[in-house]
Design a protein around this nucleic acid. Structure first.
Lengths: 298, 298
DNA sequence: ATCAGCCATGCGACCAACGAATGTTGCGCA
DNA sequence: TGCGCAACATTCGTTGGTCGCATGGCTGAT
C-alpha cells in the first residue's frame, strides 16, 4: 500500500492500460505490471480485468481507486501544508506580551510581520510575565515578550531568551516645566513636584518596584488611563512617571525626560521561547520584526 | 512518505520517545531513529525536538501528524472496504431481469441472497433482453437475467452466459376442463377453445413468437393483468397461455398444463455478465442463489 | 563522579523494486 | 489460415534502501 504503488494504480486506472501508464510514469511496462500484481496480492483482490486491449477496473478496483485518490490527495496536502509552514504562506503565530509592550513594540512588529506574511494567522494575548511564561510552557503561545529586573533574571534553563531592549523610565513634564529642556533628570530634583499616578495595580507593581527605595513621590492625582494621565501633565497639574514603551510618540504639548539610570532600575525586555525547542519559522521571522521594532524604539 | 514511515512517526509522536516507539513497534531504536530522520529529510522540516528525555513534536510535526493519521485511517478504511467486498458484508449488487423472471425467479434469489448477505445493497431493474444487455455493457448493472430463443442465441463473445433453465409454456385451463387432468397437451387439442390473451405487446412479442407458425388461437377476451387473465380462466371463460416463470404457485381453482415441446419453442434463460470481466464476489454468490431458485422452479 | 537513559551513526547483510529481455495470449489483416 | 502486432506476464541480474548490531555523545540523576 505504498503511495508509489497507489500512484501507479491510479495512473493505470486513468489510462486503462499498463503500457500507457508506464510511458506516462517513465517506468518500464514490467515494473508497472509487477506493481499492480503486488497490489493485488496485498489486497487479496483482483483490481483489473485484463482485456485484449488494456485493462479495466473491477468492482474492487473501483472501490480501491476512491481510497487511493483520497490518500494521494491527502499526502499532497500534507506536503503543501508543510511547505507553506516553511515559507510562511500559511500557519499561525500566537504571541503573548506584557501590557506596555502591547502599546507600541509588539503591534509594530506584528504589523510588519503581517505585511510580508499575510497568510499567517496572528493572535496576541496580553498578560504579566509569570502568566505569559506559563502559557508558553503549556504550549498555548509560540513566543512571549516578557520583562525582568536585572536582579531577578528569568529561568534561562527553561526558556530561550532573546534580548530586545532595556526599558528606560521617563518623566512626563509640561512644556513650561523648569526641567522641560533637560534630557535627563535625577528623581531628587522632582522631590517638590506633584506626581500623577496611574491605575493602582500597574503603578504599584511596575513603577514602584523600579524606583529606588528612598524615593517617595508626592501623589496628588490618580488617573487611570494613559491619555488622562498625560492630559493632566499637559495641563500643568503635575508630572508623571512613564515607561518608555508606553508612549508611541512624544505628544506635542509636553516633554519626556529620561530618569538617570542610577535612580531607576531598567527592566530588561526579552522575547522568550521554550528552551530546547526549535523555533518555528513564523517565530523566527517574528523575532526579526521584533528586533527591528525594538531598534526603532531604542 | 511511505505509510510504514508515517506509522512510525505517529507512534513516536504518541509515545514521545523514539526508544519506546521502537519497543512498541518491535523495531530497533536505530531503525526508528533513521525513519524519523529520513522523514525529516524528505519533508525538509524538523518534526521533533530532541529533548534530554525523549522527543517532542514541533509545529511542523503537529501539522504532519494530522495528515499522517488521516492517511493511515484512510488506508485502513480501504483495507476494510476491500475485505468487506470480498466477504460480502458490504457492497452493492445491481440486478436486471426480464418481466416474467421478476415474478418469481429473481425475487426468490434476491431474498435468499439478502438473508445471508444483509450488508449488500440490492437493486433490481426490469427490462427487455436487449435493453438489459445494453445496461450491462454500459456498466449500469452487475448481472442481468435474460432470455433467448434457441434459434437466436445471444452474443457469447460479449457476454458470459450462465444457463439457468429453459422456460416452458403452460396452458391454464379451468379445473372442469376436459384436459384438466392431463400433464401435457398438444396445441391442436385446443383448436376449438377460446383463448384469453394478455396485454397486446407482451403477448405479441413474447408468446406469439414462441408458438409454431401454423397455430392461430381463437381469441375472445383480452385481459391486461395476469390476475384478471387467470380469473377469467377460473371462471370458465376460456384457456390462456402462460410462461411458466410468471406463475409463482399453482392457483387452486385451475390447472396448468405443459405444452408439448414440439409445439412451443422454449426460451432459454441465462444470467449474463460481461465477457472477460471477473465476476465480483457478490455476483458469484448471487448466481448460486439464482441456480438454486431455478432448480426449485424447474 | 559514575551510571543510566536516550538519540545518532557507521557497518554489514538482506530484501524489495527496477530495467532489460523473453514468453504468452488474443486480435487484425492479408 | 497463417503471420504480425500489441498488450500483459515472467525471469534474471543489479542496485538502492532499510534493518539489526554495535558504538559514541549527551544529559540528568543517584
Amino acid at each position: 500500500m505504498q503511495p508509489a504503488a497507489l500512484e501507479v494504480f491510479r495512473t493505470v486506472a486513468a489510462y486503462g492500460s499498463i503500457t500507457a501508464a508506464a510511458r506516462a510514469l517513465r517506468y518500464t511496462q514490467s515494473a508497472v505490471s509487477r506493481q499492480i500484481a503486488a497490489l493485488e496480492a496485498e489486497t487479496g483482490a483482483r483490481l483489473f480485468d485484463r482485456l485484449p486491449r488494456g485493462v479495466a477496473l473491477t468492482e474492487q478496483g473501483r472501490c480501491l481507486l476512491g481510497h487511493a485518490e483520497a490518500v494521494l490527495d491527502r499526502l499532497d496536502a500534507a506536503r503543501r501544508d508543510l511547505a507553506a509552514l516553511g515559507d510562511l504562506t500559511a500557519g499561525r503565530l500566537r504571541v503573548g506580551a506584557f501590557p506596555t509592550a502591547v502599546a507600541a513594540l509588539v503591534p509594530r512588529a506584528l504589523a510588519a510581520f503581517r505585511a510580508t506574511h499575510p497568510g499567517v494567522a496572528l493572535s496576541l494575548v496580553e498578560g504579566l510575565t509569570p502568566g505569559l511564561l506559563e502559557r508558553l510552557s503549556a504550549g498555548d503561545a509560540d513566543v512571549v515578550v516578557v520583562s525582568a529586573a536585572p536582579d531577578r533574571p528569568l529561568d534561562g534553563d527553561r526558556f530561550d531568551l532573546h534580548h530586545l531592549l532595556d526599558e528606560v523610565l521617563l518623566v512626563a513634564v509640561p512644556r513650561t516645566h523648569r526641567l522641560a529642556r533637560r534630557r535627563t533628570v535625577r528623581l531628587r530634583e522632582l522631590a517638590d513636584d506633584a506626581f500623577i499616578a496611574g491605575s493602582a495595580t500597574a503603578e504599584e507593581t511596575l513603577l514602584r518596584a523600579a524606583l529606588p527605595a528612598g524615593f517617595r513621590p508626592r501623589v496628588d492625582i490618580v488617573a487611570a488611563e494613559w491619555t488622562g494621565k498625560l492630559g493632566c501633565v499637559a495641563a500643568g497639574l503635575g508630572v508623571a512617571l512613564v515607561p518608555a514603551l508606553a508612549v508611541r510618540a512624544t505628544p506635542p504639548d509636553l516633554a519626556l525626560l529620561r530618569v538617570h539610570r542610577e535612580d531607576a532600575a531598567v527592566r530588561r525586555v526579552f522575547a522568550a521561547t521554550l528552551a530546547g525547542r526549535t523555533r518555528p519559522p513564523a517565530v523566527r521571522a517574528f523575532l526579526a520584526r521584533l528586533d527591528a521594532a525594538a531598534a526603532g524604539l531604542r
